[in-house]
Design a protein around this nucleic acid. Sequence first.
DNA 1: GTAATCAGGACTTCCCAGGTCCGATTACAG
DNA 2: CTGTAATCGGACCTGGGAAGTCCTGATTAC
Lengths: 157, 157
Amino acid sequence: MLRLSKLTDYAVVVLIRLSHGEAVQTSPGIAAGIGLPEPTVAKVLKALAGSGLVSSQRGARGGYRLVRPLSAIPVTDVVAAIDGPIALTACVEGSGTGCEAECTCPVRGRWDLVNDAVRQALGRITLADMDRSTPRPHVRAAAQQPQNLAFTLISAE
Amino acid sequence: MLRLSKLTDYAVVVLIRLSHGEAVQTSPGIAAGIGLPEPTVAKVLKALAGSGLVSSQRGARGGYRLVRPLSAIPVTDVVAAIDGPIALTACVEGSGTGCEAECTCPVRGRWDLVNDAVRQALGRITLADMDRSTPRPHVRAAAQQPQNLAFTLISAE
DNA sequence: GTAATCAGGACTTCCCAGGTCCGATTACAG
DNA sequence: CTGTAATCGGACCTGGGAAGTCCTGATTAC
């Protein structure tokens, strides 16, 4: 269903939570703040730290800290950090069951078209756009119909 | 990994195949033509027929027929036919484990932003764009680097 | 020195995509 | 008009991967 993993959803919540309140926050603290199991949050934070989206401080009174502001973090980066690079299809299977014949797979390579379109669409949206408490500079309509908001956002450029 | 199902991949191939050759084609015939297991192709065709992308003719000498031309079928429709409506997150879980507190889920509803962005990106690409044998009107660069092609396609409008 | 925190891996559980099957329906042939 | 064959339609089963949990080790402030 073109679904992205639940961990990515959590990652967004965690990052936004991290942008509020104290500069450095511990993983149990964040977990308690957003009402998610602690091990899961820890897993997400590890992945985010591995991708450089957050920096970690070990030891007592350690924790995680946001490196960039929310407005400098496109959704693409979060997805890439958790789910790996965006690639909607795993068409490259290697042994080529039927892709060797030129007429057999008429879309060979064409999925990149879709991949990049999605990548760009997600690259335009930052976490600041997704944070309800942040005033969104690109969009200025009412907050009741997110669909129209998105439309405005995209068509504005 | 923001992956769309393999069935959707098949659906695109099937639809393009259906646009070539005979007007009505049987599911075993298509399966043989693209080198995929017949039951799988049949399943894809059923879903496509259910969504009205193809029309089915039962009985002897029956088969499937393309309703609209490829250029009138955006990728969105294929995804919606196979995977259901595009919704990257299943945030709406009903009982609200932690989404009831107002500050608990700071992105509540904001995923629609992303959903619609993806939806629009996919809505701009039609199956004709993905068919290698069809001359693509929007893109006119060389066919060696699909990534750049996609970039051209999107940024051209 | 001690306690608190992150880092990394291995493991189990669960769900759904992927694949397969059999029954219902229709058209053609005699 | 009836029989037959070819096809669609829906239900079933299975394997892979994500989601979540736990443990041990490394690092740093107090």
